[in-house]
Design a protein around this nucleic acid. Sequence first.
DNA 1: CATCACACCTGTTAG
DNA 2: TCTAACAGGTGTGAT
Lengths: 212, 212
Amino acid sequence: MFVKELTPSDVGKLNRLVIPKKHATQYFPQVVAETADEVQVEFVDREDRPWTFRYCYWKSSQSYVLTKGWNKFVKEKRLRAKDTVAFYRCEESDGHRRTYCLIDIIRHNGGDDRSCGSSRSTSGVIGLGLGFKRKMEKGDEEDHRSGGFSRDKNGVMGVALDLSLGRATEKKDDIGGVVTGSTVPRKSSETQDKNKGLKLFGVWIADENDRR
Amino acid sequence: MFVKELTPSDVGKLNRLVIPKKHATQYFPQVVAETADEVQVEFVDREDRPWTFRYCYWKSSQSYVLTKGWNKFVKEKRLRAKDTVAFYRCEESDGHRRTYCLIDIIRHNGGDDRSCGSSRSTSGVIGLGLGFKRKMEKGDEEDHRSGGFSRDKNGVMGVALDLSLGRATEKKDDIGGVVTGSTVPRKSSETQDKNKGLKLFGVWIADENDRR
DNA sequence: CATCACACCTGTTAG
DNA sequence: TCTAACAGGTGTGAT
C-alpha cells in the first residue's frame, strides 16, 4: 500500500502515527467520526506476529492517526525517527480471496550508509519487501477479516512471498503494487540494482538494534 | 471511612479524584459498568453544604474515580496537592438509623510545619475528625438516603460529634471507625500528643489558606 | 471559538 | 519477577 518515514513525533511520546491523508483515504477504512468510534486495524509483521492498532481521525488536527497499539509497536521494534514503516495488503492465492495486512519496518542507517555502499546520496531509501512468511498451519488466531480494509486495489499475492517496492523520502511513496506470489515478475534480488541504495529485508535489518 | 492525600492530578485539570480501589470497593456503591453509568454520591461538608459527585469506574485504567462535581469542590475549597480529603459515614442516633455522608478537608502545611510545631518529621499527618455539626432543623434537603453507600461498617454516630482518627501518609489510612457521639472514648485533645504531628480539625485548619 | 468535562490510555512503580 | 493500581496524560463532545 504505502510506506512512511517516521518523524520524531511518530516514535515519541505522542503514541500515535500520523497516516498521510492521501494514503489514509485511499487504503484505510473510512473513519470520520462515524460508524462508532471504534475502528481497529489488524496487521501481522514479517514474523507473523499480530499487531492491532486503533485507527481514527482527529478532527482537531485534521489528521488520520494510528493510536492504540502503535506505541507498543514502536517500543518492541525499537523504531526511531527516519525509520520507515511499510503497509501491505496481501491476498491469499487459493481462490478464497482472503485478505490480510502486513506491516514491516525499514531501519534507517544511523547516520551514514556504509553498510550498503553503492552510490552517494543516501536519500531515497528503497525498501524491497521480501519473504513475508504467513504461517497458516496453526489455528490462525481469530480470522483476520482483511483487517477492515477496503479492496479497491487489485493486488493478488502469494502466501509466502511479498514483493513490492517503495520510495520513502519522495512524493511517490506508494508501494508500486502487490504482485502474485508464484509468478514473480521481477527477480527478487540482483536485478533491481539501479544503484539507488536498494536494501533487502532479511539482510540489513540484522543491525545492532535488532536482537533476533 | 477513609482519607486520601490529594495528588497534583487530583486537584489539576483532570477533574477527577481517584478513589483507591481498596476503599472504593469497601465503602462506595458498586459500579462496574452496570446499573447504567450514572452513580451519584452525596456528601455534606462541615458547614452542612451539600456536595454531589458522580462516581464511576473507568475500566480503561481500572480505577474508581469521582468526576462530575469534584472540580467545583476543589475550586471552592481551594484544595491543592498534599491536602487531604476525608470521607465519613455517619448515622443518626435517634433510632431511625438514617445515614448521611460527610466530606471534609485537611489542609497541608505549605512546606514546613511551623504552625503545629511539635516534633520534627512532618510525615505522618494525623487527621482527627471533630465537630461536624449536622443541622437537622430545616427541611433536610431531600432526604439523603445514605448517599447510596453500603453499610458493612458498624459505625454509629451522634448527630453533633464525629470523632475519628486517620493517618494520611501511611498504609493505614482507613479512619479507625466512627464512634458514638455522647460517649467519647478518648479525650478530644491533649491526649493524643504522641509527638507525631497530631492535628485537630477546627484548630490547625484555620491557617492562612482558610478563609472563614 | 474557547473552556470544561468526560471517558479513554499509558508509563511508572510498589507490592 | 511480574502484575495491578494509579498518577498523569490524551482526544472529543458539550456548553
